[in-house]
Write a protein that binds this DNA or RNA. Structure first.
Lengths: 112, 112
DNA sequence: TTAAAACTTGTCAATCTATGACAAAATTAA
DNA sequence: TTAATTTTGTCATAGATTGACAAGTTTTAA
């Protein structure tokens, strides 16, 4: 999908002929803020991915892919990261998985 | 580099025979907080990458690669993202670049 | 064994950022 | 025009992050 996450939502919404207000209601969001999200002026909150999947009957895994890919792309674009970053990221994921299976679950800062 | 960013800093610090206090001073950080960073209990702040590069005479670009790759990996691990996410991210970066060259610089939420 | 140095952990106030909410302006469609 | 839709601006507040420091533990070296 060659689009920002905001553009992606807009396309979905339009193709389902929903107004901002209608979709915003389903997402438990203010329509003004949904407008900003679609226009890339605010972030979509991860916790609403489920609701978005429900609203348009989408596969949640695919939606997550779109969502996180969008976040990474934005950050790399913004900080002018080298393309290698993604390759290194993949290595690091494998590393995290390996120490996880060896030593039990890793705790993140934002976990209890 | 197969290591978290915290482990990476620790290796650098050890190999240069610096104490937490010594490196923390160079990074304008409390040694207790540097300890937490090395142990993955706090995030390293992007704005200190330059100082870190200076402290160990590292290429800032390579350091950025390590840093952002670490962030992406953590997130993907944490949210159980499909490996495809990185591929989609690459597409999206190209998309961002293309609309940038076409239409001028994109503004991000955190820019003025 | 002991003392000092090095490191870790916990806590909390202050700071920063993101979010929800609403008003008002602009755009679009009928 | 006027009603619906969308966009933009603002702001208080909630939530997260950070710096700072104290107290605890571990390591080092005599």
């Amino acid at each position: 999908m060659k689009a920002t996450f905001g553009e992606y939502i807009r396309k979905l919404r339009k193709s389902h002929r929903l107004t901002l207000t209608q979709l915003a209601f389903q997402l438990d969001l203010d329509s003004a803020n949904l407008s900003k999200i679609e226009n890339g002026k605010r972030e979509f909150d991860e916790k609403r991915l489920e609701k978005l999947a429900t609203a348009f009957n989408l596969d949640i895994e695919q939606l997550k892919t779109e969502y996180f890919a969008d976040q990474f792309a934005k950050k790399m674009y913004q900080y002018n990261c080298s393309p290698e970053t993604l390759i290194v990221a993949e290595e690091k994921i494998n590393y995290l998985k390996s120490i996880n299976t060896k030593q039990g679950k890793i705790k993140f800062e934002n976990e209890k």
